[in-house]
Structure formats: structure tokens, C-alpha cells
């Protein structure tokens, strides 16, 4: 009799932890946004009614979207080279992508403080080259945040896509070229369509990761490039406005879930391997 519930018994501790310490607290945070003094939707109307808050939301979406597009482009082309490289080189290149990925976000963002600061390497080089107007203010700009985030997510994209591209059978590529397709046509009509599911997975990872990032925008963007993550922290820990912080948290959850669910649907439909 016990045997019928054995699966439940063994997964019970992990289930209990996720339900009690994740679903309940996050649910409570989201629930709290509907029970403020301003009425059920009051906190959201207040959020969208404030020009500053709208700007933060749009800026975050813009940064996340641009980061995703750049990471996709750079990651896909690099992963293609890695997947077609000789075996010995391939493992070196994979190690070189894993190393930054396992190094913490703080360390990798901090590197851009040294690079992009007013007396940073890039500005020193520009001054040395005699570029007019140098040094430029580069840190604490939206561009700096995007560059640092692309840096953060390209390794993840490379590793996601190398796995997908390696699984494309060589026969397919040979068949395509022996039937007269140019390398570019093969790339566009055979390799790219087969890589689409991987591209979607990578895009979801990068978009949700950069939409909810905290450390990089905080270090590289500071107060002048406020995004949802840094804004949530500021409202919760500096302004102590937990209603406002909860509203930001709820919007982040909704956007993340919408992107994940929406893209998974599209991925299923586009997968050329499925019938």
C-alpha cells in the first residue's frame, strides 16, 4: 500500500520547500499588490501613471531586447565556428566560454569599471590616439550596461548553441552542398532552420536574465540607468516602500512568465524535427 505513495513520499521534502518558501512568499508578494489602499488595480495604475516608472520599465525592456539581439548574433556565429572547428580546438574554445560563465557576475561586471571609467583603459587609449573630445563619459550610460550584459550572456549563448549545432548531422550539410547549394545557401536553408529551437532557448535565457539583472546595471549603470532590478532594490531597501517594490516584482514575474511560455509555444510550432 505504501508503495503506491513512495514517489510522493520521496519528493515530499523538495516539494514542501518549493511550495512553502517559493510559491507562498512570491504569491504573497504578488497578492499584496491587489490589496493596497488604492484598490485592486490601484498599484498598477499608479505604476503606469508615473512617467519615471514607465521610463524604467521601457528602458529595461529596451536593454533586455538589445542585449538579446546582440547576444544571439554574436553567439550564433561564434557557436557555428566552434561546432565546425577541429575537435582539439573545439574543447579549448568550449573551456574558454565556460570559464567566464562560471566566474561570478560581480567580477565580470567589475571588469567594465576598469575598462570604461573616466580614467579607464578605453578612454586612456582614445586620449593617447588623440581622439577629439576624449575622455568621454562612458560609464553610467545605457550603452555601457548593454555592452556589459552582452559580455555576460554571450558565453551562455555559445554553449547553448554549440550543443544544438553539433547535433546537426554532417550528412545533411553534405547532401545540401552536393545538391548544388552554396555554403551561404546551406547556412540559411539547412543550418539556420535546424538551429531555431536552440536560438529560441538561448533568447529566452538571455532576455529573462537581462530583464531581471541587478548586479551589472547597478555597477555599470548606477542611479542614472535605473532598471527594474535596481529599482526594486531601491524601493525595498532605500525608500522602504514595499507596496511599490511588490508591484515591480509582480511585473517582473508576469513579463518573465509571458516570455517563457510564449516562446516555448513558438519553439514547439517552429521545430522542423517535430511533425
Amino acid at each position: 500500500m505504501l508503495k503506491r505513495f513512495m514517489g510522493w513520499v520521496m519528493s515530499a521534502p523538495a516539494t514542501a520547500l518549493v511550495v512553502l518558501c517559493l510559491i507562498v512568499p512570491v504569491g504573497a508578494t504578488i497578492g499584496a499588490t491587489f490589496t493596497t489602499d488604492a484598490g485592486p488595480l490601484g498599484s498598477y495604475l499608479a505604476f503606469l501613471g508615473s512617467g519615471f516608472r514607465r521610463t524604467v520599465l521601457w528602458r529595461t525592456l529596451e536593454i533586455a531586447l538589445l542585449t538579446t539581439v546582440f547576444s544571439l548574433l554574436i553567439g550564433f556565429l561564434t557557436a557555428y565556428v566552434v561546432s565546425r572547428a577541429p575537435a582539439r580546438w573545439r574543447s579549448v574554445l568550449i573551456i574558454a566560454a565556460v570559464f567566464p560563465l562560471l566566474t561570478g557576475v560581480v567580477v565580470r561586471s567589475f571588469a567594465f569599471l576598469i575598462l570604461l571609467g573616466r580614467n579607464g583603459m578605453v578612454n586612456n587609449a582614445l586620449v593617447w590616439l588623440g581622439v577629439e573630445g576624449a575622455p568621454f563619459p562612458m560609464l553610467y550610460t545605457q550603452g555601457a550596461v548593454i555592452i556589459a550584459m552582452v559580455y555576460l550572456f554571450v558565453p551562455l549563448m555559445i554553449l547553448t548553441l554549440v550543443g544544438v549545432l553539433e547535433n546537426i548531422p554532417d550528412d545533411l550539410i553534405q547532401a545540401s552542398s552536393s545538391l548544388g547549394a552554396s555554403p551561404f545557401q546551406t547556412f540559411r536553408q539547412v543550418i539556420f532552420p535546424l538551429a531555431v529551437p536552440g536560438l529560441i532557448v538561448g533568447a529566452v535565457l538571455v532576455f529573462t536574465g537581462s530583464f531581471t539583472a541587478y548586479a551589472t546595471p547597478q555597477l555599470v549603470g548606477g542611479e542614472s540607468v535605473m532598471v527594474m532590478g535596481t529599482f526594486l532594490h531601491q524601493q525595498a531597501m532605500v525608500a522602504f516602500d514595499w507596496d511599490s517594490a511588490s508591484t515591480i516584482a509582480a511585473i517582473m514575474v508576469v513579463v518573465t512568465l509571458a516570455v517563457v511560455l510564449g516562446m516555448t509555444r513558438i519553439a514547439k510550432r517552429l521545430n522542423p524535427m517535430s511533425t
Binding site: 517559493l22 512568499p25 512570491v26 504573497a28 508578494t29 529573462t208 530583464f211 531581471t212 541587478y214 532590478g229 526594486l232 532594490h233 525595498a236 517594490a245 511588490s246 516584482a249 517582473m252 514575474v253 518573465t256
Partner: peptide
């Protein structure tokens, strides 16, 4: 999102 988990 991790930051939402932390805050919650």
C-alpha cells in the same frame, strides 16, 4: 526572477 525571490 532571483531578485523577486530574494525580496519575497
Amino acid at each position: 526572477p532571483e531578485i523577486v525571490l530574494g525580496f519575497s
